[in-house]
Design a protein around this nucleic acid. Structure first.
Lengths: 263, 263
DNA sequence: ACCTGAACACCGTTCAAGT
DNA sequence: ACCTGAACACCGTTCAAGT
C-alpha cells in the first residue's frame, strides 16, 4: 500500500448519489476483518489508532489517515476525541488497561509478593513486546500525577500494585518504595528492548540512492579504528540477551526489595 | 510572543531595498545574546535547536521557527542539515557529546571502577537535568547499532566506557555485561526524572475555559474512592526522593557488578 | 445526532531563481 | 556560495452547513 493518496485524486462519488454503484467496494471504507463496520465510537477509534501505530509508527498516526481507515473524514473524529493529544492519551490508557493485576482474593501458598511482582513484570513486558512502536508513548508521555509513574500509568494498576503488596505483607512505605524501584526497572529494560524491536519500522522505504559505493559503511560515524575496544567487542556487543538480562535484573530487584522488606 | 505569524502577513521589506531603514531592528533576526550574529553553520543550528527544545519542547522545534530564530528562512537550513530527522539526530549527538568520560591516564588509588561508574552516572544525570525536554529524544530515538544503547549512544562514550572498565580490571565479557545493566539503570531512572521535570513545559498556554466548576477535580479519572490505597498513600506517593533513589539504586548496581566482577 | 466542505494556520521539503 | 520565493503535499482544527 503506497498511501500516497494526494488531494488531487479523482473525486470520490458525490454523497448524494445512490449507493448502489456497481463497484464492489467503496474507496476509503475499511471493513474490519470480521466483515461488518461498527459505528464510530471512541473505543473503535482508539483501537484502530493502536493498529496504525503498530504498523507504521506514531508519526504515521494522523487524524486524516485514521479517519480514512475508519471510512470517515478526519473532522468526524473530533466528536469522540479531543484532538490528537487526547487521542494519544487514550491510546496509552487503552494499552496500560490491558495490564493484568494478579488478584488479591484468597492467597495461595506460593503466591508471595515475589510471584506477584514476577507476574506483573512479565505482563508489562508482554505489552512492550506486543506494541514496540507504541511503548515509547507509554514511557515518555508526561504523567498526570507523580503517583502515575510510567509505564504503570493508571490508577487501577497503581492501586492493584500497592494493594497487592500490602496484602502480601508490605508496609505502606515499603510498598511505595517498591513501586518506585519497580517502575524504574521496567522502564529502563523495556524501553531499551522496544527501541531495538521497533527500530526498522517507521522509515520503511527510501532505497533510492543505493549507489554510493565509495563509503562501504553506511552509518554516520562508523569509521572504527578510533574505537578499538568497541571494534574488538563488536560480537559480544551485538548479541541479544534481553531475556536473561530481564530475568536476572528482576531477580536482583526482588532480592533488594527483600532486604528492605525483612528489616 | 503570540507566534501567529500567518502566511498572509504584510510583506516583509523586499530584499532589494536598502537595508539602512530607520527601524531599529529587523523583524525576525535574533542577534545572539552576546551581541554578534555568527554565520550559519551546522553547529550554530544545532545549538539553537537545543535552546528551542529546552524552552518549548520538541514539538515546538520547527524548521520554520528555527530558521526565524536564526534570522533566516527555513529553506536555508537544508544546506546544513538533511531534514528534520537529521537535525534531531544531530541534537542527540550534541547532547551526548557533552558526556565526560573519566580519563584512563595514570590511575590513582581510590580511582577504581566504582568511582569511574559513579562519576559517569552523575554526568549523564547532569545532562538529563540540564535538558529534561530533550532527554526523551536521547532515550527513545532508534539507536543506529545494538552497541549504541541509550542514553550512551555514541561510539566515543561506549569506547570510553568499555576501555575504562577494562583498564580497571574488568574482563571483556564483564565490561559488556556492565554496559548493558548500566544503560538500563540510567535509562529507567533518568527518563522518569525528566518526565516529571519536563512535565508542565510544552502545553504552557490554554487557560481559556476555566469556568466549569461542577467537576472540582480537573484530571480525567481522578475520582478517587475506587482507589483507597492510592488515596491513603497520596502523601508518600507525591514525595520526591529522586536523589536518594538514584544514589541507592546506583549503589546496588555497583554491588551487583562487584559480585560478577569478583567471581 | 452525526457527518462533511471549506477554510485557516500552520507544517516539511524541493527547486528554480536570485544575489 | 549562499539564501529565498513560490509551490506542493501534507498536517490539526474550527465551524457553518448539510442530511
Amino acid at each position: 500500500m503506497r498511501s500516497t493518496r494526494g488531494s488531487e485524486d479523482p473525486p470520490t462519488p458525490a454523497p448524494g448519489h445512490a449507493s448502489t454503484s456497481t463497484r464492489g467496494e467503496r474507496p476509503g471504507v475499511a471493513e474490519s476483518s470480521d466483515g461488518h463496520r461498527p459505528g464510530l465510537t471512541r473505543e473503535r477509534i482508539v483501537e484502530v489508532a493502536v493498529e496504525l501505530i503498530d504498523i507504521d509508527g506514531v508519526s504515521a498516526l494522523t487524524m486524516r489517515r485514521l479517519g480514512a481507515r475508519l471510512g470517515v473524514e478526519a473532522m468526524s473524529l473530533y466528536r469522540y476525541v479531543n484532538g490528537r493529544e487526547d487521542l494519544l492519551e487514550a491510546v496509552v490508557e487503552a494499552l496500560v488497561g490491558t495490564i493484568e493485576i494478579p488478584a488479591t482474593g484468597q492467597l495461595q501458598p506460593g503466591d508471595g509478593w515475589q510471584a506477584f511482582l514476577q507476574h506483573l513484570a512479565h505482563d508489562v513486558r508482554r505489552l512492550a513486546h506486543e506494541h514496540p512502536s507504541a511503548f515509547p508513548l507509554v514511557a515518555t508521555r508526561h504523567p498526570a500525577a507523580p503517583w502515575l509513574r510510567p509505564p504503570l500509568r493508571s490508577l487501577r494498576v497503581v492501586e492493584g500494585f500497592l494493594e497487592g503488596l500490602r496484602a502480601r505483607g508490605f508496609s505502606d512505605r515499603q510498598a511505595v518504595a517498591a513501586y518506585r524501584s519497580f517502575t524504574s526497572f521496567l522502564l529502563g529494560h523495556l524501553l531499551l528492548e522496544s527501541a531495538v524491536h521497533g527500530a526498522a519500522m517507521s522509515p520503511a522505504e527510501e532505497p533510492l540512492d543505493e549507489g554510493d559505493a565509495d563509503l562501504p559503511n553506511r552509518d554516520h560515524e562508523l569509521d572504527l579504528g578510533r574505537y578499538p575496544t568497541v571494534t574488538r567487542l563488536r560480537g559480544p556487543l551485538g548479541e541479544d540477551h534481553a531475556d536473561e538480562e530481564f530475568e536476572e535484573a528482576l531477580e536482583h530487584l526482588l532480592v533488594r526489595l527483600d532486604l528492605e522488606h525483612a528489616q
